[in-house]
Design a protein around this nucleic acid. Structure first.
Lengths: 157, 157
DNA sequence: TAAGTGCAAATACATATGTTTTCGGCTAGT
DNA sequence: ACTAGCCGAAAACATATGTATTTGCACTTA
């Protein structure tokens, strides 16, 4: 495994097992697979959890902002927020500067739920990274960030 | 950024931007985002393309095998294969050893389509990996494989 | 200030995926 | 040889997501 061609999907020697993007999907799939089951026991779905993690960082946040950060369409987030409202996890209010935008905030109950979930997610992370050095994690992150940046430039055709 | 805690979702200093799994999702999202548009022009959706890449490696393959490799539910693959049959991309036949299993094979037309798509995907890959050394790609792959392996062990709770 | 344009969110509509159930074939134990 | 149980696939059913359209607000400019 010394030739870049082996990683390139257009190379004849390409194997799915050696594809970075396939392995990303695989790791991501496994990571969420069993975590979802646990989260569901606490009445929280994967997209709901994602929204909560976004809100933990910046609050309040608009529907559009959340959608972008959560890599999901606005209409989808809009409906997810509806459900979260019913569950009492968030509150919404129009932005005073611009009445078109809806600002979303975690309720105390929502924060409480998030705090309860955090250690569970932490264990899953620890499990995933078992036997991997900090150096390697840093390196992984750097490369992933580089890839994301590359793909944020102008598209292929 | 020297403490492992910064990557752990349960750490107070955790930031989404520094989360390996978030960055994986982000990279994967961007990678497929504009590629899907191009594939659609050739009448191929993302799941259809995934199935084709699986079939390129082992042919014929059963519905269940494809589902597992493509990280998708069997019922979903079953329906995707239906569509691909109508498009003439694959043929199916019962496994002579076991009549329950359906073996799927790419038709010449399917192989032709795959060959046409391959260089497009290759360009996207090249674009994604721009400025990243082979060494770093190898390292990335190793780490991802390690993570996948870790997560294939017994689940959290 | 009134009309036009653009944007955020929500809604209606279409589609795709997942979950559950059903059907048929295989296999092992009696 | 028969029956009970398991497994693969497909069908029925429920749900979630995405796409297109609509609504309401804000900014511009004439």
């Amino acid at each position: 495994m010394e030739n870049r061609g082996d990683y390139d999907p257009s190379s004849p020697s390409f194997r799915l097992e050696n594809s970075p993007f396939y392995q990303m999907a695989h790791a991501d799939f496994k990571y969420h697979e069993d975590m979802d089951k646990v989260l569901h026991k606490h009445g929280v779905s994967k997209p709901v959890y994602r929204v909560m993690t976004v809100l933990r960082e910046r609050q309040p946040a608009s529907i559009g902002t959340i959608a972008e950060a959560a890599l999901t369409k606005r209409s989808t987030i809009s409906r997810i927020i509806d459900r979260m409202l019913e569950q009492g996890l968030v509150t919404t209010e129009p932005n005073p500067e611009d009445n078109r935008v809806t600002e979303v905030t975690l309720t105390p109950a929502g924060q409480q739920t998030l705090r309860k979930l955090t250690p569970i997610v932490g264990r899953q992370f620890t499990r995933a990274m078992d036997g991997i050095s900090n150096r390697d994690i840093t390196q992984l992150l750097r490369t992933l960030q580089k890839i994301s940046a590359n793909l944020s430039k102008l598209p292929i055709e």
